[in-house]
Design a protein around this nucleic acid. Structure first.
Length: 490
RNA sequence: CGGGGCAUAGCGUAGUCCGGUUAUCGCGCCUGCUUUGGGAGCAGGAGGUCGCAGGUUCGAAUCCUGCUGCCCCGACCA
């Protein structure tokens, strides 16, 4: 038996790591801060990708690919962008190794020094806008709606599997528009797509909003975000969409002729989600028995477990289960039959629970005699013996039900951990206990930073569906016209 | 970069203070038999440059010196 999963309430971050290990999602690689995404974890990512990719394409976007290397000078074109990323870049300085004359090893060949260093992309705005300059001349070239699936590198000081790794996988959309209004609409459209994906596929309720200037993306005029609550009450930013104004157009001199034959700078957006979403799924739904996956994204939605003693029973049970498997496959359900001889049914139950498979069907001699089959759902642990009739419909109902239940549970959890705070003591107490807190803020970065210093809470967002309400800042007592969302965050 | 810790089989570890035959145990792995409705049992077996390099010693996982790597806490962040 593998080492048990550390309970959530004992050590939340160890629990998180144990889930990843036991569910076979990923592991640390020999390279510090970089993870190996194992087949099961990567299939989950592929399912995320394909659902999102369809949503992007349905809204008119197409995929393209830009280089992983970006000339260093590109980063200094946009002042805030440099500042945001300079401190966490991997840089290529040479292109050749040679034999070390003093040992059997290899050393960098100093003769092969690059004239201009190349930065391994931490994000692709700069290389993409330098390319867009050549692609855009007229209003007829707009809007330009492009997405790229890629890896990026940010040399973070401390890393955690999926949540923050040195290299991570993501998608980044980069769009160009003729008007300010159109670009803002695009940024909001993509935020809504992220929110819909989070809620409909990941079963994670999110709050939509705008970042404060302090939390804004380097080079953006506005950063929109969705924030989700994890089971320890901390916030996780699950997606961002930026209205970039004309900052990158100006930095890379991207202009177009409008209908009136006037030269104008292009308006831009960029938006992205990453493998961090897998961390969000883990931390939202899983329990002390292991991973819990939402059916719509689970690599395996249904696991079939045979139970038998004799060879004769075995062949009858397997025949039945293969038949069921084919019915489910023909109906587009991702199903797997665990017919290995190596492990007992009990072992298989535990194993597939740990790996988060939403629904388990077990069939043994008793079921053969009674024409029944046992349904066991991962989210509630509930087991039910049903007739073998209507398996496809039953399974579909179960999966739909589990998907909905996971969302409802996560929403109920968030709601029971969200409060209004009207004075400082109340604010500190609610933050300390791991909650989302709506509170008044005087709108200054100074106050925001002071609150962060005192409580480790940050302003997660200013809500999109803002409710006007006169109040006074939780810290300074200065007037405020609406509440903002505070929480400790990942 | 500051502070703390660790390095022994694929993984987790005992032994290190106080040097002494063949380096401990569990998991996992291999073979066989019995098992299989909630992580099976028994028997046998394979697997080690004790992080690296020096030194002390008749003798080093153990003592000394240097190096390297990793983990945790803080400053940075999708």
């Amino acid at each position: 038996m593998k080492k048990a999963i550390t309970p959530r309430n004992e050590d939340y971050s160890q629990w998180y790591l144990d889930i990843i290990e036991h569910a076979n999602l990923a592991e640390n690689s020999v390279v510090r801060g970089c993870m190996v995404i194992k087949p099961y974890g990567f299939t989950l990512w592929e399912n995320i990708q394909s659902a999102l990719d369809k949503m992007f394409k349905d809204t008119g976007h197409t995929n393209a690919y830009f280089p992983i290397f970006i000339p260093k000078s590109f980063f200094s074109r946009e002042a805030e962008h440099v500042e945001g990323f300079a401190s966490e870049c991997a840089i290529v300085t040479h292109y050749r190794l040679k034999k070390d004359p003093n040992s059997r090893g290899l050393i960098v060949d100093e003769a092969a020094k690059l004239e201009e260093e190349l930065v391994v992309r931490p994000t692709s705005e700069t290389i993409i806008w330098s390319t867009y300059k050549n692609w855009i001349q007229s209003y007829r070239d707009l809007p330009l709606l492009i997405n790229q699936w890629a890896n990026v590198v940010r040399w973070e000081m401390r890393t955690r599997l999926f949540l923050r790794t040195t290299e991570f996988l993501w998608q980044e959309g980069h769009t160009a528009h003729a008007t300010r209004q159109e670009a803002i609409e695009e940024a909001e459209r993509m935020l809504n797509i992220y929110a819909k994906f989070a809620e409909d596929y990941m079963a994670i309720p999110v709050i939509k909003g705008v970042k404060t200037p302090n939390e804004r993306f380097a080079g953006a005029e506005d950063t929109y975000c969705i924030e989700a609550m994890m089971q320890d009450g901390k916030a996780l930013q699950a997606g961002t969409s930026h209205f970039l104004g004309q900052n990158f157009a100006k930095a890379f001199d991207v202009k177009f002729l409008n209908r009136n034959n006037e030269l104008e700078y292009v308006w831009a957006t960029s938006w992205g989600v990453s493998t961090r979403l897998i961390g969000a799924i883990i931390m939202t739904h899983s329990d002390d028995k292991g991973l819990v996956l939402p059916p719509r994204l689970a690599p395996t939605q249904v696991i079939l477990i045979p139970i038998f003693k004799t060879e004769e029973e075995k062949s009858l049970v397997l025949e039945k289960l293969n038949n069921i498997k084919n019915q489910l496959l023909n109906n587009g359900i991702r199903v797997k039959l665990d017919d290995s001889d190596d492990n007992s049914p009990g072992w298989k139950f535990a194993e597939w629970e740990m790996r988060g498979v939403p629904l388990r069907l077990a069939l043994g001699p008793k079921d053969l005699a009674n024409n029944t089959i046992e349904y066991a759902r991962r989210d509630t642990g509930e087991k039910q013996s049903l007739s073998q009739e209507n398996i496809v419909d039953n399974v579909k109902n179960y999966l739909e039900n589990i998907q909905q239940n996971l969302y409802n549970k996560a929403l109920a959890f968030r709601e029971s951990h969200t409060f209004d705070a009207n004075n400082w003591d109340e604010f500190v107490e609610k933050i300390e206990n791991g909650n989302f807190v709506w509170a008044h803020w005087d709108g200054t970065t100074e106050t925001e930073l002071k609150i962060k210093e005192l409580t480790k809470a940050t302003i997660r967002l200013i809500p999109l569906d803002i409710k006007s309400e006169n109040g006074t800042c939780i810290l300074t007592g200065n007037p405020s016209k609406h509440r903002v969302l505070f929480a400790r965050a990942y």
